[in-house]
Amino acid sequence: MAENTNSPTSIPDNTSSPTTRILGWVTLAGLALLVIFAFFVSPEDSRQTADGTIIGQFDAVRLLYIHVPSAVFAYVSFSITGLGSIIYLWRRTRWWDHVAHASAEIGVIFCGITLLTGIIWGRPVWNTWWEWGDVRLVTTLLLFLIFVGYLAFRAVPNEPHRQARNASILAIVGALNIPVVNRSVEWWENRTLHQRSTLADLKIEDETLLTLMIGFAVFALLFLWLLVHRFRVAWLSKEAAEAGLEQALAERRAEASSSSGAEVSGSSRAEASSSVEARS
């Protein structure tokens, strides 16, 4: 680890703090526990129908312990982005803009994992990688693309206040569009393969429910850890951009005063910089 000689204080050269370090280790342990429960403790999904044939997802159900929590927390992330954007437009504090941005990025990651694990799960269980008739699948894909667009917009250099404000508007329009997309896809094909909410299923095995609950808890911790660190990265990148600007201004001022000598020193910055432009 590189030691920074400029900071002899206790402030670290990274985005960690004692609390997030503990949170990080607990999350890692939780993920390990989730893998153990998903693969070895929870049973396979199978049941006997009235005529004696055995049906079910068998071991493919183990993919759902990562698919369902990441789907739920993708939607949580985008909701926080929407909420943060509304509060940003109202209060105009940088804090909420960073929360919205950080949460959207985590949401895109979770949403991507949801889509990938869903595609992989669909192949053995539905016998297809992709099912156009499934409302949640198509809605989630469009949600993913809308927030990929949001992140692309945020990645383009722009005047900071305008960027934060326009990004907030994009996030709110994008979030509002979700129910419209959902309704339209549902009317479009009017059939859904998707599993009914497993929590409401009375026949669910105890260990299955327990494993799913562990999944939700671990993903909540993971989301929190990612959000705190991503927020701090957003904070730092704004600070670094401002520090870089101040440094560039200072260099330019020094350049101006050294090239035009004593006659310019003491005059305003505007005059100093225009004298540089006149010389070049």
Binding site: L142, I146, V148, G149, A152, N177, V180, V181, R183, S184
Partner: peptide
Amino acid sequence: TILPLLLLPVLAP
């Protein structure tokens, strides 16, 4: 380049 990415998912309905 950014207009299609922002607009087309929204126009899906």
